[in-house]
Nucleic acid binder design. Structure first.
Lengths: 264, 264
DNA sequence: ATTTCAGTTCCATTATTTGGAACTCGGTTT
DNA sequence: AAACCGAGTTCCAAATAATGGAACTGAAAT
């Protein structure tokens, strides 16, 4: 799919294995692969040597390797908002006692990078790294709404517009209108657009230069909460988002004047 | 370092960026890189295109990309013991109320894949994916001890034998002797070998075929606990390790007779 | 105006990847 | 027993991509 020479192809193979979500046999991969047998075979060999994949000789299956877990630890630490945002998430979660999500946008999709769950506090790693649709989730829409026009347009073409519930906004036009509302309102709702019974409020995390750094949301079920109640949390959400943005700023320009490089 | 054509080299570059642990400039990487300027440049381009790296145009720095977080989620889910072991860790941690680590062996090093921390329960992602030395930690030694001879020999050559404390076993000979004790005893101690004041007991997680799947440890500080007290937790550790091994078995051979393929 | 340096591009040479076809090895069918 | 099968593996000449020395750019320092 993505060109970029040999490396790109090898990474495509990695993604493919990841998509199966379970150890997978050579033949199965071959069916789903654009590569001829010998080529795919060699890629698998290489990736296994590199321990990006692990081969189970007994079962003859390939699975993602531990080297990825190692790399991801570094990635999560250095390239996402998560470590910076953590204390703020803790505080927010403690204050309001509902499920909180922290996400970033990754090729038009929502990538959850941290979470605080009211009921069972330690469900994190299983959720961080998870992806979800942008057009029908609170965080997704909040981030899309504040994207610069060009990026927003590109992101919109990447939406699948699968209809999950009756409330799902299943067209670009409907979504665009909603995004305008979100910008004027300053926050987004998910009105059971992704899962029936699940609603949420979300705000974007914006840098001083109004760049979308990520999104922050509070989720509840229709049984336990309603839009009015979620609305009351918006100030908390906004101040947390602002605090995270500030932390990001300080970290990116430690001790220096912020953003003087963009000014003309 | 690791050959394997273009893909191997590109992954080496990735590792290099990871090692810096922070966004890093082209020049800095170049100094530490075996590749000529143009070649390194092209690798960085490719990896950035592939979103394995992220380039910050303002600061001119490269950092690990979010695609890794995504892949790692899949890796953690499908290729490590962590998801299987989670309920057992929860139970163990709840019962004994001390810090618990779950680890696997990755090229002679300890790779922590899950953790329960007594005091501050949500410190997980920051730890999962972390690596540590094998020769001077409880889990490390427990796993090394039960490795088949050939693998153990290979793993021993991969130890750095850096002296962290007075107790550190800083030679292959000393370590080998200790490993023998561990096998007969069935569990390993870390007697402040890695960090002063930190002690731990650990057991290996062994499959039905006696393959080392991972390790499990309980950690405490010399202030709060002592070897005698840790010793009392060994039965709990062992039964948890056994439970995890059983879960792994069931998962690898769902509904089938275990391990009949190795018989003869 | 000149130098310096980090980062980027060019392009002929070189090395790697590519994939069709042929092979191997259990197991199954005739 | 011989032939067959299909999954997995290896081979090798042709096609393609990677390589890196050198030259370029643009911004900052002198």
């Amino acid at each position: 799919m993505s060109g970029d020479g040999t490396v790109g192809k090898a990474l495509d193979v990695l993604d493919q294995v990841a998509e199966f979500g379970r150890p997978v046999r050579f033949g199965t991969l071959l069916e789903a692969s654009p590569f001829p047998k010998a080529t795919l075979y060699r890629f698998l060999q290489t990736l296994t040597n590199q321990r990006m994949l692990e081969y189970d000789a007994e079962r003859q299956t390939y699975a993602l390797g531990v080297r990825l877990v190692r790399l991801a630890h570094a990635a999560w630490t250095q390239s996402s908002l998560a470590p910076l945002a953590r204390p703020h998430l803790d505080a927010l979660s403690a204050k309001i006692g509902l499920t909180v999500h922290l996400a970033q946008l990754d090729s038009g999709q929502v990538l959850y990078i941290d979470k605080r769950n009211a009921a069972q506090p330690v469900d994190m790693y299983s959720q961080a790294g998870k992806i979800g649709p942008a057009y029908c989730t609170g965080v997704g829409k909040a981030m899309l709404a504040f994207l610069p026009d060009a990026e927003q347009a590109r992101a919109l073409t990447q939406q699948s517009f699968h209809v999950f519930t009756k409330q799902t906004l299943a067209s670009k036009t409907a979504l665009k209108a909603e995004l305008k509302n979100i910008v004027t309102r300053g926050h987004a709702f998910d009105r059971e657009e992704h899962e029936p019974g699940i609603i949420c409020v979300a705000v974007p995390i914006l840098s001083a230069g109004a760049r979308v750094l990520g999104g922050l949301s509070i989720t509840g079920s229709t049984k336990d909460t309603d839009y009015g109640q979620l609305d009351t949390h918006v100030p908390d959400l906004k101040s947390t988002a602002a605090a995270i943005a500030r932390a990001a700023q300080d970290w990116r320009f430690p001790g220096a004047d912020p953003l003087q490089q963009t000014g003309t």
